[in-house]
Amino acid sequence: MKTLLKGLVAATILSTTLAISSLAAAVDLPATIRVIVAYNAGGSSDTLARVTIPRWEAALEEITGQSTNTVIVNAPGAGGEIGWTRLSQAAGDGGTIGVINLPAVPLVERTRNSAYKPWLESFAPIAVNVIDPNVARLAKTSKYKTMQEAIDAAIANPGSVTVGADGPLSDDHAAMYAIEEATGAKFTFIPYSGSSAANRAFMAGEVDIVIGNVFDHTKSAEAAAEAMVLLPSRYDFIPDVPTAEELVGIKGLDLGSVRGFAAPASIDPELLKLYQDAFAMAYADEAFIAEMRAKNLTVVDALVGDAFGQKMADQEKLADTLFPLFKAGGYAE
């Protein structure tokens, strides 16, 4: 898979270089490109944009020989809905792109009948190379000694085991339902405003299990009796953490927070292609990837264009599967 992707990326770059001359003549870059981030400055999506976008801008200018300015616009509010609505309604002249967060986009879309419904037809995939996998952990303070024991208790006695996470409607919340789906367990969900608050409650012994992302785990690894990453294989940032399959035998989980770049669906196809190529070019720079890792961005192999589109379609399927559980939990109508 990895080598195949690398091949794909290489091929994209190759075709980019071949296409440079023709594109440069055919497309005019907007003078200013606004990049909408649906969360506050300083958050992980904001950091991602601020690290990536200057590289992307340089790549754009290198490919086209034209100059442009990029501006990061933070449009927080309504759990991201304000920013994503703005992105979906922006003009298709290439003057606006943004970060979309999955599975939050499809989950918010379903619960609130968002203006960007259906989301798959509202956003055109550009590229992604950051996916932050979910990690579920059992607290040392819990009366259950192992994760298996906790899950068994949640099957035998539904609702008796508490799971804390950022929420509601977060990727962590979705991950809990995915575990329920896979095992038949029934947890009591305890939502916190932000994964940092959930992490603190976990350390203070308020909940049995906490679900977060990679760096939530590294921040409080000592408080965990057991941890598992909800991916098909181990994750290279935390190689010591076993997968859910290794720890408790749950197969097929592939859960995390996907933070990718997308354009409004109305974008000019030639510009979209150009934007995708520029991201592929930026992602191919090893020094840049090292910089991202140093900034604690959970880099994965890049998915550009249709490959990201496929990831989006996967997330739509996931949201379809899990949405009834959100409904049953009272988090959606």
Binding site: A41, G42, N199, R200
Partner: peptide, 11 residues
Amino acid sequence: LLIHGLIPGPT
């Protein structure tokens, strides 16, 4: 503080 992504609290 909140504007700058700093959530006041023990952490």
